[in-house]
Amino acid sequence: MNTIHYVLIALFGAYFVMRFLIPTSVFPRKIKVSRAYLAAIFLILAAALVITPFVWLVCNVFKDQSVLMKYSFLPPISEWSSQTLNFTNFTKLFQGEESPQGTVYFWQYIINSIFLACAGTSISLFLTSLSGYALAKYKFKGRGFLIFFMAGSMMFPAMLFLAPLYQIIYKIHWMDSYLSLLIPNACAVFGIFLFRQAMQGVPNSLVEAARMDGASEFRIYWNVMMPLVRPMTGAYCLITFLGNWNNFLSPQLYIQTHAKLTLPVILNQYLGLYLNEYGVFLAGTLLAIIPPAILFFALQKEFVAGLTTGATKG
């Protein structure tokens, strides 16, 4: 722990004692005001703590390899020059690297990652919401058992299935194919349950009204159900996109062709036994943050609403 940590802990402790342990009525007005200031200071410091690594990352991607370890953030302004601050890391990142399949450029990995994250999210969104709809709105024999079985399967850690999954993928010749990345996670039980819960909150009479109106079962799902669980859809999109975007293990295991690799795998290769390109690694990391950040801001409203759906009446 460094000094900042001690200061933050002290501030938080003081705030906690004043906020929760001492009854409000004993405070004179001045203390009440100062308590509000204290809360503001605490929140500003907490926000600074959260944003610091990001600022550190942005500073370091523009630093030359020669001064990378010399300063925590940027060098003093007096030392700013093209020797200390430049785009070398990005140039190196995009210059391409040799592989058995020829030169592969960094943008190829970005495209791979974007494709896999988008395709994985789309497939998963469609299948999990469809399954959730069926479990929420259809009565069929064995439904209870199916739900129990699926809920039970969530209790096993994913690592447990790694070996059998590898064997299955190997036997059905999906090695080095994107199917091995897209299909096993296409219908996540977690997603099915999320959608089931959200769709259970939609009154049955809406489904019945649509049925009377002449809607087919798929149209009811698509035109009535999905718009009504939009907050959940936004939240699930973001969660799944991030999961796919950051997926390291599966591409590492199943993909062998260099040109098919994804960002997390390739970024990891910059920090290895024989290569320690921290600057290039950080430049890649910065670029890797951008797509999920864009998606987050685009879906922020849906995402926050999704997390609070059902929390309050009406």
Binding site: P203, S205, L206, E208, A209, R211, M212, V224, L228
Partner: peptide, 20 residues
């Protein structure tokens, strides 16, 4: 016969209007 093919229309107790 499916509800949609019975040529009947129904008004529900809770209105069942599509909120979106």
């Amino acid at each position: 016969v499916q509800p949609k093919d019975r040529n009947l229309a129904m008004v529900f107790q809770n209105y069942a209007l599509y909120p979106h």
